[in-house]
């Protein structure tokens, strides 16, 4: 039985106390590539702030996670307050407000995977990687997180690493899977 209930909350929250400024610092923070991608999204919506989720996705894509500085920079770019941006950033499970490793392992902890004993898979991962849900290995390679139903319950237990889905996962498969990610 898994008693760890470290979940998105531990990863997603941060005590941002940043003030709303539109200084030069924020303007220069985003890279040209990030700006171009955000501009593309802004063009598709009626007003800038409607692109904030896309902006968060774009910055996270380039930097792996959303720091307070990223929140401030996105806020300045979209003419929103950092608090508004952070309220959106912390709402969604897959926007990371704390640093994550090079690869994020998402273990499905929903009902079909519960019935098919995802707990055993989690325990084996804990032993192999020496981390619990919400933690990152000391070499920054893996972050381990629980995740809601991955939509392949007929192949439970399931997990995702980055963009790859693994189905019918057994403990015996884990080493081979993990090897692919360095």
């Amino acid at each position: 039985m898994i008693t760890q209930k470290i979940n998105k909350d531990n990863v997603a929250t941060s005590g941002s106390t940043a003030h709303y400024t539109t200084g030069l610092q924020e303007e220069q923070y985003l890279t040209d590539l990030e700006r171009q991608a955000i501009d593309h999204e802004i063009a598709l919506v009626p007003y800038k702030s409607a692109a904030v989720i896309e902006a968060l996705k774009i910055v996270q894509h380039h930097r792996r996670w959303i720091s307070d500085e990223s929140v401030n920079a996105i806020a300045a770019y979209l003419q929103m307050s950092p608090a508004e941006v952070d309220s959106v950033a912390t709402f969604y499970n897959l926007i990371f407000r704390k640093p994550v490793g090079r690869h994020v392992i998402l273990v499905c902890d929903s009902i079909s995977c519960y019935v098919m004993k995802y707990g055993d898979i989690y325990k084996a991962l804990q032993e192999k990687l020496h981390i619990k849900f919400g933690e990152t290995t000391s070499d920054q390679c893996y972050t381990l997180l629980p995740n809601c139903c991955l939509g392949c319950c007929d192949h439970a237990p399931a997990l995702m690493i980055d963009n790859d889905l693994y189905k019918d996962v057994t403990i015996a498969m884990l080493d081979r899977i993990l090897q692919k990610y360095t």
Partner: peptide
């Protein structure tokens, strides 16, 4: 247009989905 979400069960509720599409909390 294809819009990909960032994960929250509430995004499936139709009015919350509209808020998410507008870049708000779902």
């Amino acid at each position: 247009h294809l819009h990909t979400g960032v994960g929250r069960y509430m995004c499936g509720e139709e009015t919350a989905l509209l808020n998410a599409l507008e870049g708000k909390r779902a």
